[in-house]
Amino acid sequence: MVTCYLRYVLDPYQIKAFEHYANLWIPLVEKFGGQHHGYFLPSEGANNIAMAMFTFPSLADYERYRQDSMKDAACIAAFQYAEETKCILSYERSFFRPVFGDQQQ
């Protein structure tokens, strides 16, 4: 199991546009076999930082999702929406594996 953590730097004047972008991606990740844990938008503190987390059964499954999403019409439209609105200034991606107490994963 691998969880992808995305940290976004947003245009603070485009938060609503980013929220729309987030709502586009949640079902798309799930369409390709991932489990989305949601997007987290600015509230208190920095007004231009957001994050998202989603999990795939393996890094290979995540890589397959990345390749397949580049050919999917709905994914391409979501990428184009972010580009057109310029709601995302930059992002970084990290991967984590969960620990659930003493259970072996």
Rank of each mutant, 00 (worst) to 15 (best):
K71Q: 11
G34K: 04
F56P: 01
A17D: 03
Q67G: 02
S94A: 13
F40S: 00
D61F: 09
Q80I: 15
C75Q: 01
D61Y: 10
A77Q: 07
Y13R: 14
Q67F: 07
A46H: 15
K86L: 12
Y21C: 08
C4N: 08
V9Q: 06
E44H: 14
C75S: 02
Y8N: 00
E44Q: 15
N47V: 12
K16A: 08
M1D: 00
G38A: 07
Y5T: 14
D68V: 14
I49L: 10
I88W: 05
M53G: 12
G101I: 01
T85L: 01
V99Y: 13
Q35H: 12
E30N: 02
A60S: 12
D68R: 08
D102H: 12
I49K: 04
A50N: 02
Y81L: 14
G38K: 06
L6A: 13
I26A: 09
F79W: 13
Y65T: 04
I88N: 01
L59Y: 13
M1E: 05
Y39H: 11
A60T: 15
L59C: 10
H37I: 12
T85P: 08
I15H: 08
M53Y: 12
L59R: 03
L6Y: 10
P27C: 09
L28P: 01
Q67C: 10
F56C: 02
Y65C: 03
F32E: 05
L59T: 04
A73D: 06
F54D: 09
A78R: 00
Y81W: 08
M51Q: 07
A46S: 14
D102F: 13
